[in-house]
């Protein structure tokens, strides 16, 4: 059975459209939501695993999403932090919505929880030391 993990970025006008419903109903896909950040009226992000169908069905579903205006990317990317070079300033935490990057007491060292990361890449540019990269 084919499976595919993708990151879906919704423009603000689509956050109130029931797109996942169509994926289930029209393309017969099972959708496992891994991470989600959807606020009506703002850009939304959804990391999903699509399965339960043949490869063609998944691709057709993705094609449908793209036609609706959703930006679709594979989740093969991950954020890499060069910890030895980190000065633990906390600048990257300012832009990390899912709080994958955090800086907390008692030691005020930067902590990166990969499981919470939605690979939005905001931290890459926010890091003053330029030590956060995206791997493909």
């Amino acid at each position: 059975m084919a499976k595919k993990k993708v990151v879906l970025t919704f423009p603000p006008e689509l956050t109130e459209t029931p797109l996942t419903y169509h994926l289930v109903k029209d393309f017969d896909l099972a959708i496992n939501i891994l991470k989600a950040k959807i606020t009506p009226g703002e850009e939304g992000k959804l990391v999903v695993e699509l399965s339960n169908g043949a490869e063609e069905k998944i691709l057709a579903g993705i094609d449908f999403l793209k036609k609706q205006g959703v930006f679709v990317e594979p989740v093969s990317k991950e954020i890499l932090l060069d910890e030895g070079e980190c000065i633990h300033c906390g600048s990257c935490t300012a832009v990390c919505h899912p709080k994958a990057l955090s800086i907390t007491p008692p030691d005020w060292k930067l902590n990166f929880d990969k499981d919470l990361c939605i690979v939005c890449e905001s931290c890459v540019k926010a890091c003053p030391m330029q030590i956060i990269k995206v791997s493909f």
Binding site: H88, C89, G90, A94, I103, P105, W108
Partner: peptide, 25 residues
């Protein structure tokens, strides 16, 4: 500020430092 969030106009706003307390220590 160090608690991680402050309230402005009734809204909870996450806080982040730019200077490194770890290094300062």
């Amino acid at each position: 500020l160090r608690s991680g969030a402050i309230t402005i106009n009734g809204k909870e706003v996450p806080t982040a430092p730019l200077s490194s307390l770890n290094q300062a220590r």
